[in-house]
Simulated assay, not measured.
Amino acid sequence: MSLFRLDTSILPGTSASAEIADLVETEWTAAHPGEPVIRRHLGADPLPADAWALATTAGFTPEPERTPAQRDALALAATLAEELAAADAVLLAVPLYNYGVSQHFKTWADLVIAAVALTPILKDKPTVLATVRGGGYGSGTPREGWDHSTPYLRRILADMWQAELTVIERELTVAAVTPGMESLRGLAARLHTDALDAARDAGRALATR
């Protein structure tokens, strides 16, 4: 058994998404002591920004005419895809940034797609997504509909790659430290507790798959 874990926070020391993922991982490793956890932290070690373009253009270039950079990009894409394909379970921690998906995740996903095209690489594979948002984006809030990350993540992971997906969400992660959000701090604390409880439940479920 093996677990593949992907993190994308640019603040690994204080990451709200990592806090959730840590609990999921703890439950998984408790059930599978000694089994490998393959890690990739895109926030701390980002992928080259031009890798996707190089891998994509390489696909339209005859092999003898590919540049060294194109070959390196294709090899990177294949490595990323193999990490997913080889894992028995998948855990991803992906915060919302600027109302959209993390550029680190987007580059990673695009490279995997460059390697596998439309292949459902996570078909029926148990996968947990931990995603967090600093503000509130729910029904009736001023920014309802501004979360352009979570729907995209679902499209890629569940619809395109066909993962058996569990999503853990937490909002108002910055309420405790942001002036003007004092009235939301009680709700933020409850949402925090709910997310941690959901993480433990998801980790136990992931461990039994």
Rank of each mutant, 00 (worst) to 15 (best):
D72I: 12
K125G: 04
P151G: 08
I156F: 00
A69G: 04
Y152L: 15
R133T: 01
L129I: 07
T67E: 06
G134Q: 01
E65S: 08
E82F: 14
A51I: 05
R154D: 13
S102N: 04
A78N: 08
A49V: 11
Q70P: 05
R66C: 06
A115E: 06
K106G: 14
L157V: 02
T56P: 10
E144V: 04
H41Q: 12
V132A: 11
A55P: 09
T107W: 01
V132T: 15
Y137N: 04
Y137I: 02
L80I: 02
I113F: 00
K123L: 13
P95G: 01
G59Q: 08
E82I: 12
G145E: 08
V116G: 02
V112Q: 05
R155F: 12
P46R: 01
G138N: 10
L91I: 02
L92G: 06
R39S: 06
L47F: 00
A115W: 03
A117E: 08
H104A: 15
V112T: 00
Y97W: 12
A114F: 03
E144P: 00
G100H: 09
K123N: 14
V24P: 11
T131P: 03
Q70H: 03
E25K: 05
P95R: 04
H41K: 06
I38V: 14
A78P: 11
L47W: 01
L23G: 12
F105D: 13
V128T: 10
A86T: 13
A117Y: 14
L118P: 09
R155G: 13
A130R: 03
Q70T: 12
F60I: 15
R39T: 12
D72M: 09
V37I: 04
R133G: 07
E27I: 11
T131E: 08
P151Y: 09
K125R: 14
